[in-house]
Nucleic acid binder design. Structure first.
Lengths: 162, 162
DNA sequence: CGTATATTGACAATAACCTGTCAATACGAC
DNA sequence: GTCGTATTGACAGGTTATTGTCAATATACG
């Protein structure tokens, strides 16, 4: 019989809500991005490189994903003309993911629709509630991030090979 | 230029946190479940059918997933002996997913470890904060669920065929 | 300079989700 | 009972994520 504390129990229920929310958000995101040929995942990556061309591995670190999955999606973005790979003076192999004009156009479109969506959903809830939830989720994320547990003792951003 | 309201902006940041948290929780869940040959997804399904044998489609509805993906995972669970399909008196095709003793054993193991994990993470945060976040996330989920927008006008649980 | 270590991209395999489609089954209206 | 509709499992195809491995490139240390 596992004994859950009150906090352990609340956190467990929170976990289930996060799973559900994640699924629902993905669906809405895909619907928003589809008209311009994007998906939630591609849109996210495009949004990151919009602020400056960076290598795939940097995108992965920023988003908390593996290099390899970002690479796949980035290659798809390039294949479809939303981005192009630019030479990197600082690293011969690590080409930079750079947004094309087609990419920028797509981003303008989805940003517009995302804002309407976020305003509609957000508008149904108290600002204070949303901010509290945001703060708690950020704190939880820090508790869950690997480096927070082990402090910064030794390991940096290595590939985890158990 | 999209105009985000304060609430729209808070919700947008919340969305990004949900993505991150989802990824981190999945990783920890996989680590917890691995020793007994489970993954987060399989564990979740096993946990649902633990409380009574039900058809695959019912599991999917409960979890907010598609029938088809649950079917794949359920088949994997059956292949590996965690569940077995039982006849359904009420529906010839819709066999029931039923936990085996091996499945129950695995569930006992992961429940124990999950409780330790949840207590550790949850213990780092205020109970009131966790409960507020839980409430807000639930409200947000309701705002995002398809039937809440359209009320319950007409459509039930049909396959969405845009 | 040279070597160990870290980072990066490429490639392969796998898991878990999605949509679309089809046929079998159940069920309600008439 | 029959017919139309909803539900269900099965199969196919695609996207996004994972891990593991390898070679190429950077970088830090002696």
């Amino acid at each position: 019989m596992p004994e859950l504390t009150a906090q352990g129990n609340a956190f467990t229920e929170l976990v289930l809500e996060v799973f559900r929310l994640h699924g629902l958000i993905l669906r809405d995101g895909d619907a928003i991005a589809r008209p311009v040929g994007l998906t939630s995942a591609r849109w996210q990556i495009l949004g990151v490189v919009e602020h400056g061309a960076i290598p795939v591995a940097s995108v992965a670190r920023l988003m908390g994903l593996s290099r390899q999955s970002v690479q796949q999606t980035a290659d798809a973005l390039e294949r479809e003309g939303f981005t192009e790979y630019a030479e990197n003076v600082r690293h011969l192999r690590a080409k930079l993911v750079d947004v094309t004009e087609k990419g920028r156009e797509a981003l303008r479109f989805v940003a517009e629709r995302q804002a309407e969506w976020a305003n509609e959903i957000g508008g149904k809830h108290e600002l204070e509630d949303l901010q509290t939830a945001l703060r708690v989720l950020r704190e939880l994320r820090e508790s869950l991030e690997p480096q927070s547990t082990k402090a910064k003792a030794g390991r940096k951003n290595m590939e985890v090979k158990e």
